[in-house]
Amino acid sequence: MRDHQSGHLALSRRHTLGLLVGGLATAATARAATPKAWAAVDQLGAATLADHLEPGFSLSVMKNGAFVYSKGFGFANLETRTPVSPTSVFRIGSVNKQFTAAALALLAEEGKLSFDDALAKYLPEFPRAADVTLRQMLNHTSGIGNYTNRVNPQDMLRAMRADYNSAELLKAMIEHTSPTFVFEPGTDWAYSNTAYVLLGLVIEKITGEAYAAHVKRRLFEPAGLTRTSVDSAAEIVPDRVSGYTSHPGSATEFDNAAYISMTYPGAAGAMRSTSEDLCRWHLALFGGKIIKPTSLEEMLKPGLLKNGQLPEVSRGPGPKKPLKYGFGLGISELDGRKMIAHSGGIPGFASLLTTLPDDHITVATIANTDDVMRGNFMARQQAVVDAAIRAALA
């Protein structure tokens, strides 16, 4: 999920990082000693903690299939002062979406679906399901609204605390997505968590298998992801990281993030992982271990509107600009190099997974905060990733 509506949530336990600044040494690096090329990354990581932008984060960098940097910064739990490590397990939010897309691509390879199938073929209960294709849902041109965009944040808080089975989740998507459509299918672009939750239900309908079990068998195990799973708050997870949000009115303190049943985000954002496992995922995805090259081409094909043009979206002040977005993956450039990336956000956590496919470099970072509007968090997170990429290129 991305841009969830929690904001500053009314939570009970308050913590401050004021006592910890200067004492927050990074956790032990998982590989050899940090070379000089990584000094800028280390400095940015330390500055992020000193500026109280997050309690902690994990950062891993893979080049040519091997880790060249993997480190934890700050704390995985502020109460126990447990440090973050490269194997710390975080929730990853909308980075989940590319896994859902890859699972659908596998089913398409097997002839069990077509990306151009109407949603009505699988979930006729959803309003106007005959007017929307799976392809449009995958690239966010379906016009389906976003159930996480609630007018009253308290409605979201109440809804996300309940557990849902598949039938209840479908009912919730119908009832909680308002408006059901924000534009006519294929005429614009708008991010939709609802669409991806529905796609997970499509997977279950086709396979007769629970989404969690299906992606474990078809994606996690072939990719060698030993610490990645569809999450459940009930499970005992070694090295599980606690999630935090900003304490209202404070630039330095954190509260425990709001509780969310991981049945509610479903295939849009219910997974947990580590920064190292996310790097392994892209190694497998882009290396042909999961889907065929033709399927990867489909995933990386920028979605077009019915008029054959790229959608145009606002990215801050200024005119709208063309957007290249495939199936759960954004396509852009960094210093003239092709870059594939996606971010994620869910109560307590924020993630970013980036690959430069032509340079065989992947960078994954996950933080245990959900307040991405705090200070310059988003710019700093991107700066850390960019510095890691440039160090890997050096």
Rank of each mutant, 00 (worst) to 15 (best):
D3Q: 13
H4N: 15
G7S: 10
L11P: 11
G18W: 13
T26E: 14
W38M: 10
A40T: 11
G45K: 09
A47C: 04
F57P: 05
A66F: 09
K71Q: 15
K71W: 07
G72M: 07
G74A: 09
A76G: 12
G93H: 02
S94F: 03
F115W: 10
A120D: 13
L134D: 00
L134Q: 02
M137Y: 00
L138P: 00
L138W: 01
N139T: 08
T141H: 03
Y147A: 07
M156V: 10
R158I: 09
Y164F: 15
S166K: 14
L170M: 11
G186Y: 00
T187Y: 07
W189N: 04
T194H: 03
A195S: 09
V197R: 00
Y211R: 06
G224E: 05
T226H: 15
R227P: 04
V237T: 14
P238C: 06
D239Y: 09
D239K: 13
S242D: 14
S246Q: 11
S250T: 06
A251D: 13
A258F: 10
A267E: 06
A268F: 01
A270T: 07
S275N: 10
E276N: 10
L283Q: 15
F286Y: 14
G288R: 05
P293G: 00
T294Q: 13
E298W: 11
L305S: 10
K306C: 08
G308Y: 07
F327D: 01
L329N: 10
D335Q: 15
F349H: 04
F349W: 03
D358K: 08
D371C: 10
M373S: 15
M373H: 12
R380E: 11
A388M: 02
